[in-house]
């Protein structure tokens, strides 16, 4: 997903790189004027997303099968969600 976060500087926050044989991501905290988000980017695919604390906490409520749903459609959003317009 393209977003407006590329111009944001994370200050001196630590950049975390994680990878396995299927994916590679870079994670860092980015500050906005009024708050902060966690920017997750995938240098190879060019996708990135900035998650707010509530979205991140929501990840902690998931179980392996709901996360499997996220993984099920590579490089695209989950399909058939009733929240999508």
């Amino acid at each position: 997903m393209k977003n407006a976060w590329s111009g944001l500087e994370g200050g001196d926050d630590q950049v975390i790189e994680l990878g396995n044989e299927f994916a590679e991501v870079v994670v860092r905290k980015v500050r906005t004027r009024n708050g902060a988000r966690l920017l997750i980017s995938s240098p190879k695919s060019g996708h990135s997303i900035a998650l707010c604390p509530l979205e991140l906490e929501a990840l902690t409520w998931q179980d392996p099968s709901s996360l499997s749903l996220l993984v099920s459609n590579p490089y695209g959003p989950v399909e058939n969600s009733d929240i999508h317009e």
């Binding site: 977003n3 906005t32 004027r33 009024n34 900035a50 707010c52």
Partner: peptide, 28 residues
């Protein structure tokens, strides 16, 4: 607009007693 430059930034403001959220949504 510069008070809410990035997606998710919001401020809360009033008109008389009515409180409004002024936010920049995820699509900007």
């Amino acid at each position: 607009e510069s008070e809410i430059p990035d997606p998710g930034d919001y401020v809360v403001r009033r008109v008389l007693e009515d409180s409004f959220i002024v936010s920049r949504d995820e699509s900007g």
